[in-house]
Simulated assay, not measured.
Amino acid sequence: MNRWGLALFFVIVLVVSVAGAVIRSPTATDPFFPQVNSSPRPLNSPAATPSPLQPAKIAQSPKVDAERLFSHIRALNFERYRERDRSRTREYLLQTLTRLGWQPQLQQFEGGSNVVAQRAGTDPERGNNSGHSSL
């Protein structure tokens, strides 16, 4: 393609792009794209003044023992490509969860297993705590 052909191509693309933008732009009579009055509100209007919010009541977060958390991270900080390494991880999770009062179980599936743990709650009306991890 010579220079004039390439220039003509870009002019056609530009015209089609501009025409498409003009056709798609909303108009005042367009029922699908009504224009919104975007005039700014005065600062003293009720909509501009936020109403005071009541602080949400949040339950006390449990304290996190950073050293204990990092000890678990250090214990699991290794590659788990081989079955031997994944087995080591499962054993660590099973032993740790049991020591912490949970009742862990393995759920086998094709290609691996999940560690599922339950712990009896202190309020019989609320049921059990449970969690799981896929390994």
Rank of each mutant, 00 (worst) to 15 (best):
V18R: 07
R84M: 08
N129P: 00
A117F: 05
R82V: 09
P31F: 14
P55T: 04
N129C: 09
L14H: 12
S133L: 10
W4Y: 12
S130A: 07
P124A: 02
S113G: 10
A59S: 10
A21C: 10
S39C: 04
K57H: 07
R80Q: 08
E79R: 04
L14I: 14
E67M: 08
Q60H: 07
D65M: 02
A120K: 15
R24F: 03
A66F: 11
S45Q: 09
P52S: 12
Q105Y: 03
A28F: 13
S45E: 14
P55D: 02
G20H: 09
F33Q: 15
A56I: 13
R82F: 07
Y92E: 05
S45C: 03
V13I: 15
T96Q: 14
R88W: 02
I12A: 14
G121K: 05
H132N: 13
L135P: 01
S130W: 07
Q54G: 02
L135H: 06
R88C: 00
G5W: 12
N128S: 10
F33R: 15
W4A: 05
K57Y: 08
F33T: 13
F10P: 06
R99H: 09
T89E: 15
H72G: 02
L93M: 15
H132Q: 15
P42W: 06
Q107L: 13
R80W: 02
D85F: 04
E110R: 15
I73E: 09
V116F: 01
P50A: 03
L6A: 07
A66P: 00
G101N: 09
V36G: 00
A19W: 11
E91D: 10
R82Y: 07
Q54K: 14
S113D: 14
L94N: 02
L6R: 12
R68E: 05
G121C: 01
Q108Y: 03
Q54I: 08
R41T: 13
P124D: 03
A66C: 02
E67A: 13
S45T: 15
Q54L: 13
F33H: 15
P31C: 05
V115L: 06
V18M: 06
L8V: 02
L100N: 11
N128V: 11
Q60P: 08
F109C: 04
V15W: 12
Q108G: 00
P104D: 10
L97V: 07
L76V: 05
P104T: 07
Q60T: 15
D85L: 02
E125V: 04
Q60M: 09
S17D: 08
L93H: 05
L93W: 11
I23Q: 13
R88N: 04
V16M: 09
K57M: 08
L53D: 01
G127Q: 05
R88G: 01
S51K: 11
R3I: 12
P46H: 01
G5Y: 08
L53M: 11
T49L: 12
L97E: 15
H72W: 07
K57L: 08
Y92S: 00
R74T: 00
Q103H: 10
E91S: 05
L94K: 04
R68G: 01
R99P: 00
